[in-house]
Design a protein around this nucleic acid. Sequence first.
DNA 1: ATTTATTTTTAGATTAATCTAAAAATAAAT
DNA 2: ATTTATTTTTAGATTAATCTAAAAATAAAT
Lengths: 224, 224
Amino acid sequence: MISELSFTEENYLKAIYHLSSEGTDSVNTNSLADSMSTTPASANDMVKRLATKKLIGYQKYKGATLLSRGKKVALSIIRKHRLWEVFLVEKLGFKWDEVHEIAEQLEHIKSPNLIKRLDKFLGFPTIDPHGDPIPNEDGVMKETIRASVSEVHIGAIGIVVAVNNDDTLLLQHLDSMGIKLGSRIHILNRMDFDGSVSIAIDDGQPQFVSNTVAENLMITLIEK
Amino acid sequence: MISELSFTEENYLKAIYHLSSEGTDSVNTNSLADSMSTTPASANDMVKRLATKKLIGYQKYKGATLLSRGKKVALSIIRKHRLWEVFLVEKLGFKWDEVHEIAEQLEHIKSPNLIKRLDKFLGFPTIDPHGDPIPNEDGVMKETIRASVSEVHIGAIGIVVAVNNDDTLLLQHLDSMGIKLGSRIHILNRMDFDGSVSIAIDDGQPQFVSNTVAENLMITLIEK
DNA sequence: ATTTATTTTTAGATTAATCTAAAAATAAAT
DNA sequence: ATTTATTTTTAGATTAATCTAAAAATAAAT
């Protein structure tokens, strides 16, 4: 068993997990400090502490890597975070972009039983409102494929996870079409001559989006 | 506005609130330390800190009393605690006696919006699964009347909040009748000659309990 | 009214988590 | 191959929350 960790320790493990899944295998002190909004000195202290607890591997000047125990903790935090986000959006009616900060707090509640029951209450979701996969109790999660509407295959279905552009006009256009983060998009057809795409939003009527819109609209593919 | 308080500070304020509502107006260091499972020295340090933050009044050797700011914090923690308990029992199917520890953690989540939405989701409950009243946003709560089944008026409805006796036979008897903490009891009739009482448990069929049982069964009255 | 017991406070330490400033090690540039 | 820049680590401090042991104040007992 892993002895009680502090919120801070849990947050560091989560940060190391996220940083190491973004390419680099070994997480260096500066980027860790950055991601935790603290100083390299503090990050270094914490890395040493987590290493003595055998949660991460660490050699001076060589960065940190999660050990299996640490990875298990990180994934359980991520699982809790994402399940709570589903709860906040689906049950309490929060919007997609309001839930992160609250889930950052809720993810540290310690009670395995609570999470089991919450999971059941929510109908065992496998994806969170941001389109990210929810690890199961063993830390296993579905791989997700993230792509723009301009590049996915015809027939694909995905959840809008980002708009690669914060142009107000584009955002207003998406809004008027009923496209928002979390919308379910079905790719019906693509015109070769101009790259415009025919899509159905949340199983509604087919609509056209221009190539420019399609390029900026990021989705994660979900299984049909 | 009240600056961010630590979990510990919030817990101390809550403890002071509970201790001062149990009779004594001014809470002495030893009982506070007791209730926080810590040493008088620690409690004394915290009392001094809360006093400099103007959350409590404190004079050396004279104990602590909540100031209005401190009382407001204490009541908001209690509100959150009790709302989460309702959630855990009614939505997640926890039993009455499993929720306290989890609610102790959830009560410290900071997001007024979350609590507003949770309150709505739960249907604006005014009483928690233990029969304790839930303060509203302004810290106002219904007064609850706690009495034994042997003394309340005919027609009263209450929630079982305690059994004044830990005799195994009595507990087994209650169990076999389907009476547990949190059960809703409707008092139908009382026999004058022996004090036995006819009750309906959770809107079920009328059943008789002896005067001895009735005397030991504590309920809080709820509005009809 | 003293003595005795209890309660409360103070003094001094400890641990987790943080910081700044300086030193040491590594990586990049000429 | 040195010099320069960057990254990482160390040293020493700080704050919150805790502790033990001793001192001081208050309350209870004779």
